[in-house]
Structures are given as C-alpha cells and as structure tokens.
C-alpha cells in the first residue's frame, strides 16, 4: 500500500468531510482519491490560508476537515493560523516537504528549511514521517491531536517519500 493510502484511510476512519488543498504533485494521488470520494468535499483553494478559515467555518457547522499543502504553503498561512490558535479550532495539516531531498529548485530551499520552525513558532505541533511505515501511525496521531485534543497539528512528509522531481526533458538538461 502506498503511504498516501494510509493518509486516506485515516481520513475515512475519522469521518473527514472536507479536504482543502492547493494542487500539489506530492499529494496528487491523495487529492484524486478525495475528489472521487462521495463523502468528502474536496475544496481547491487559491492560497493555503483560505483553508485555515474554511476549516474553522466547517467546524462551526459540525464538519471535520483537513488541509493539504506543500512546505511553501506554510508561509502563506501564518497570520490565519491565529484564528485556529485563538479559538482552538481543530486544524490538521498534511505537508509535503520540498527543499530537503534531491531538490533541484533552490527557490524551494527557504520554506523547506524553515516550515517546521515556523509552524512550531505559530504553536502548531509537528511530526515528520521520514519513511513510508511512519505515515499510518502519524496520520492517525495528527488527526487525533486535532479532533480530540482540539489543537493544531501538522504531519510533515519528508521529500524522500515523493518521486524526485526534475525539469529534465530527456535531453540531458
């Protein structure tokens, strides 16, 4: 089983009703599964901070949600995290990391290097899945800390879990 299926299984086990995301290569299979699921409302965003507010509104209405992003999206969320922090809205984040494993794009380094520290500074608990077998227990723990603990929790998915991305066109560039 692929690690993304473990995350999807955790969503289903927790009756997740809304999955918000900015399209992302690392999360693409998970997003497709959520879009195809009749019990999950998949909501594409224009920027990740919308998802923080969207899930707060969903929780007010009795629905559980999750927010998917890559490490660059963490920086887009910082002020909006104050909504979840101040009101203690449950907020589970699933973050595919860039800038840490065979990264070819130096523009991904800054958020790859600082996403976890920024989340921690914003009072979001973090854990990192460095291997595929980490994902299932950590996905369950992340959702539990959000929905039962009423907190903000992020699972960081190490870049080595995702296929190595390049812009090579086969011409040796």
């Amino acid at each position: 089983m692929n690690w993304w299926q473990d995350i999807f299984g955790a969503f289903k086990a927790n009756d997740v009703a809304m999955v918000a995301y900015v399209p992302d290569a690392g999360h693409s299979a998970l997003i497709e599964a959520c879009v195809a699921d009749n019990e999950i409302r998949a909501v594409p965003l224009t920027t990740e901070e919308e998802g923080v507010a969207l899930l707060a509104g969903a929780w007010l209405g009795g629905a559980k949600g999750v927010l998917l992003m890559q490490s660059s999206g963490v920086g887009n969320c910082i002020n909006m995290l104050s909504l979840a922090a101040t009101c203690r809205f449950p907020l589970p984040l699933f973050v595919t990391m860039r800038g840490q494993w065979h990264e070819f794009n130096p523009w991904q380094f800054p958020m790859g290097q600082t996403a976890e520290a920024q989340l921690n500074t914003a009072a979001v608990e973090t854990m990192t899945a460095a291997a595929a077998e980490d994902v299932a227990p950590m996905a369950a723990a992340t959702l539990d800390m959000a929905y039962s603990g009423g907190g903000m929790a992020a699972l960081l998915l190490h870049q080595s879990l995702s296929p190595v991305k390049t812009f090579d066109q086969g011409g040796g560039k």
């Binding site: 409302r41 507010a53 969207l54 209405g61 629905a63 949600g65 909006m80 104050s82 909504l83 101040t86």
Partner: peptide, 16 residues
C-alpha cells in the same frame, strides 16, 4: 482578527 478570512470561513460553514 484573521483579516481576509471571513468569506472562506462562511464558505466552510455553508458547506457544512
């Protein structure tokens, strides 16, 4: 607070 979030929050509530 959460400036810029009101419409997104209303959207989440409306969907729920």
């Amino acid at each position: 607070g959460a400036m810029g979030g009101a419409v997104a929050m209303g959207l989440g509530l409306a969907l729920a």
